[in-house]
Amino acid sequence: MKRQSWLINSLLCIAVVVGLVWFNHNVLHLAPEEIRGWILSCGWAAPVLFILIYTIRPLILFPASIMSLAGGLAFGPVWGTFYTVIGATLGAVLSFGLARVLGENLFRVRLEKWRKLETQLWEKGFLYILLLRLIPVFPFDLVSYAAGISKVKFWAFLFGTLLGIIPGTFAYNFLGSSFFQGKTLYVIIAAAVFILVTLIPLFLKKRMVKDS
């Protein structure tokens, strides 16, 4: 009965995700330039509005990369990175909290093969989250929601997210700023940071293997 309930909940979750992705792609379909123009039209409240939107963004699964590029376009590489890190961290905490409250009853299935992984997540949650945040290929919101359902401690998730998103956020904001200002140097810096971000997880993975 529990497995059947888990399957139904999983199918409902997939349906919601597919629906939100379709909504973002076909209905919202917002470009970074459009977001920049709308946010800056709010004057002094623009940074607060940007952070607020970034915080609630995971609720509709709007692409984090587009918001990060918009931050660079609107506020430049330095302040854009600062505001984006705050908004992204708050959004990740919101996702984590929702998943922990709802997922505890809806998606928790106790299986023997998962107990070892849950123990590792409990003991080394910070390194796992840091590694996943540094790797650009993993969807940002998926990591947040999955961490909320798993055994990762809140503080390990928070600091792993906060530190792990800084390099990629910095690169995205530099890239967004370069689109607006037409500076080739920003594009080169963004590319260099992206390369560095892909190398850091390899080092952390080796360290985790040694410690295990």
Rank of each mutant, 00 (worst) to 15 (best):
P136Y: 09
A31G: 08
V209K: 04
I35Q: 00
A156N: 15
I51W: 06
L131M: 10
T81L: 15
V109W: 03
L69M: 14
M1E: 15
I14Y: 08
G19Q: 14
F107E: 07
F75K: 12
I149Y: 05
I14H: 07
Q4P: 00
I135R: 01
A156W: 00
T161M: 14
R108V: 08
V85L: 04
L132W: 05
G37H: 07
P63I: 09
E33M: 02
L12K: 13
G97E: 07
L102Y: 10
I149T: 09
L111K: 12
C42P: 04
Y54V: 11
F174A: 01
A46D: 00
F170V: 10
M208A: 00
P47T: 14
S41V: 10
V152Y: 06
W155G: 02
L127I: 03
Y145T: 06
V93P: 08
A70M: 11
L121E: 04
S10N: 10
V93C: 11
L117C: 01
Q4M: 15
D211H: 02
L199A: 12
I149A: 10
E34P: 02
V187R: 08
I200K: 07
K183W: 10
A171Y: 04
T169C: 12
A147C: 12
T198I: 09
D211F: 01
F194Y: 12
